[in-house]
Design a protein around this nucleic acid. Sequence first.
DNA 1: TAGATTGTTAATCGATTAACAATC
DNA 2: TAGATTGTTAATCGATTAACAATC
Lengths: 214, 214
Amino acid sequence: MKIPRPTVKRLGLYYRCLSNYREDGVDFVSSQDIAEKLNIKPSQVRKDLSYFGEFGKRGLGYDVKKLLNEIAHIIGVNKEWNVAIVGAGNLGSALTSYPGLSKHKFRVVALFDNNQQKIGKKVSGITVYDISDLERTVNELKIEIGVIAVPEFAAQHVAELLEKSGIKGIVNFAPVRLRTNVPVEDVDITLSFETIAYNVVKKSSLDLLDTSND
Amino acid sequence: MKIPRPTVKRLGLYYRCLSNYREDGVDFVSSQDIAEKLNIKPSQVRKDLSYFGEFGKRGLGYDVKKLLNEIAHIIGVNKEWNVAIVGAGNLGSALTSYPGLSKHKFRVVALFDNNQQKIGKKVSGITVYDISDLERTVNELKIEIGVIAVPEFAAQHVAELLEKSGIKGIVNFAPVRLRTNVPVEDVDITLSFETIAYNVVKKSSLDLLDTSND
DNA sequence: TAGATTGTTAATCGATTAACAATC
DNA sequence: TAGATTGTTAATCGATTAACAATC
């Protein structure tokens, strides 16, 4: 079955939401509960889950631990993922010690760079390898996810190196649309700033109109 | 008129695409040209632009510089934006020197933290202020955009401080849905990793099916 | 059983795309 | 003028939501 893209994105949100419930010691939640936390409709939650199975109990809701486990399986965070970051600059270094990753089964096990000054050094306990060792290291350390944290002009080239090395998926922080045969997820920081700028401008022009109230 | 959310996101992509064309010395482009670079349909490009005006010449296409200027006005990057980053940890520090921001009219002018060890120090030339000085500094430095780069548990609190200080928009890197009255744009790094994990798992199960070819 | 909440269908809403007259 | 490409309409596609029978 074809799963809508927005549904996939929300799966991660459900996972996080349920993790919070579990930490709070909550045993059962309704689609209503989840929806309120996430600012969406309860029927959205039920529909999304229904693509993958029947996880709830009518009249009762969802068993938090059970559903958490189901979703972990669906999005693949029931196992650990080994991650390589290409680009040991500020962003790459920050990601290496980013708590949100280690907390959620993503282990950064290698950094890569082409700067001889950096190669062999450690960043937050992780070795910086020469980019030319990519293929060998990816195999040795069983790395499945690659992160692109290099400047724009190098991104496509790095993507191709990653693909050749046998990586299975890419998280791309460079502001370019990559051409690859492996799945890519873009984290477009500049675009987010531009979007917020647009919304700020729009809001202030609306606020001006508001006072005239027509 | 109500502009579709996806259109707003693409505006930033058009802006970037046209910047590249300008750098390459290209004077005119068609919706076809833009669409190819971005992997979308030409009619999508024309429809998106049509929400804001008639910027093209029939039979010729779009004047790169002129359209670039129009889009800059629409998304608000015709002027400089002063940005404050809350949280002088690894991520906050990395963003301070992120070239993608300074390049696109976003100037990080202040960092905030509550760690006395960090306050008063400089990170990439930017002073770290005490979070209790937020309101005063936002006014003095005319800061309009706030960035949340603090741990999850502190994010909602910081969002409220930012709002109270008079900030106009927030870019949020913490994995929480914020409740505010100002526009928020989420950059959800963990969610991107979860999405790529899902896609990798899905792809490898499809690949398995592929060989049997039924 | 009565009350609650699921899973699913069908209706609605919104975004994408094809098609084409307008026009450079 | 002939060729090309826009701006816009209408058709299509896809995602969200309301509604409700099923059932815990």
